[in-house]
Amino acid sequence: DHIPWITAVLPTVIICVMVFCLILWKW
């Protein structure tokens, strides 16, 4: 059976995008 890697990667991607947007917003 396949491991849904997207389910494991998606939260990390969302957190990175939120942090990236927060850094851009504070500049």
Rank of each mutant, 00 (worst) to 15 (best):
M18Q: 02
V19W: 02
F20H: 00
W5N: 13
L10Q: 03
H2L: 13
I14D: 00
I14G: 12
I6R: 09
L24H: 13
W27L: 10
M18L: 14
V19P: 08
C21N: 05
V17F: 03
T7L: 12
V13F: 08
C21Y: 14
M18E: 05
L24I: 10
I6D: 02
M18A: 10
V19Q: 00
L10E: 03
V19H: 00
I15K: 01
L22D: 01
T7C: 07
W5R: 06
C16P: 03
A8F: 10
I14N: 15
D1Q: 15
I15M: 09
I15E: 00
W27P: 07
W25C: 15
C21H: 10
M18D: 00
K26P: 09
L24N: 13
P11N: 01
W27I: 05
I6K: 02
T7P: 05
I14Y: 15
M18V: 10
P11I: 14
W5H: 06
H2C: 09
T7D: 03
H2D: 14
K26A: 04
K26Y: 09
V9K: 05
W5Y: 09
W5C: 09
T12G: 14
A8E: 13
W5K: 04
I3T: 14
L22C: 06
P11V: 14
I23N: 03
T12K: 03
D1C: 05
A8R: 11
L22G: 10
C16Y: 01
W27Y: 14
I3Y: 10
T7Q: 15
I23T: 14
V13P: 07
K26F: 05
V9H: 12
P11D: 01
I15Y: 01
P4L: 14
T7V: 09
I6A: 08
I3N: 06
I14T: 06
V19C: 06
H2E: 04
C21G: 13
A8S: 02
T7G: 08
I3F: 13
V17R: 00
V19K: 01
P11A: 14
W25K: 05
A8C: 02
V19F: 12
I6V: 13
P4N: 14
V17E: 05
L10A: 13
V17T: 07
I6E: 02
P11Y: 11
C16H: 10
I15W: 01
V13M: 07
T12C: 10
V17W: 01
I3E: 01
I15T: 11
M18P: 08
I14Q: 04
C16I: 05
L10W: 15
P11H: 09
W25Q: 09
F20R: 00
F20Y: 10
D1S: 07
V13K: 02
M18R: 01
I14K: 02
L10Y: 15
P11K: 07
V19E: 00
P4M: 08
C16M: 01
I23A: 13
T7W: 06
I14S: 14
I3C: 02
M18C: 09
I3W: 03
I15D: 00
L10I: 03
C16N: 05
M18T: 12
T12Q: 08
F20G: 10
W5M: 01
M18Y: 15
T12Y: 07
C16T: 14
L24Q: 11
C16F: 10
W25L: 10
V13R: 00
W27T: 15
D1M: 15
V17C: 13
F20M: 00
L22A: 10
L10S: 11
F20I: 04
V9G: 06
D1K: 08
F20C: 15
I23P: 09
V9F: 02
V13E: 01
L24A: 08
H2Q: 09
P4W: 02
C21A: 06
K26N: 01
L10V: 10
P11E: 01
I14V: 14
T12M: 13
V17Y: 15
M18W: 01
I3R: 13
L24W: 03
P4V: 15
L24E: 04
F20W: 00
L10M: 04
W5F: 01
I23F: 09
I15F: 02
F20S: 13
I3P: 04
T12V: 06
I6M: 03
I23W: 01
I3K: 05
V17I: 14
F20Q: 00
W27D: 06
W25A: 10
W25E: 03
V17K: 05
L22T: 12
V19A: 08
I3V: 06
I14M: 11
K26Q: 11
W5V: 06
V19L: 15
I15G: 03
T12P: 13
V9C: 02
P4R: 12
I6T: 13
V9L: 13
C21V: 08
D1T: 05
I23S: 05
L22W: 07
W25S: 07
W25D: 04
I23R: 09
A8D: 08
C21R: 07
H2T: 12
W25N: 11
V9M: 15
A8V: 09
L10R: 07
H2F: 08
T7S: 08
I14E: 01
P4I: 12
V17D: 04
P4T: 12
W25H: 06
I15Q: 00
L22S: 11
T7H: 09
M18F: 11
W27C: 11
V17P: 05
T12H: 08
I23C: 05
I14H: 06
H2P: 12
W25Y: 11
P11R: 00
L10F: 05
H2R: 11
T12D: 00
W27M: 05
C21M: 03
P4K: 15
A8P: 15
V19S: 09
L22K: 02
L10T: 12
L22Q: 02
T12R: 00
A8L: 07
T7M: 04
L10P: 08
I14P: 11
K26W: 02
I15R: 00
I6Y: 03
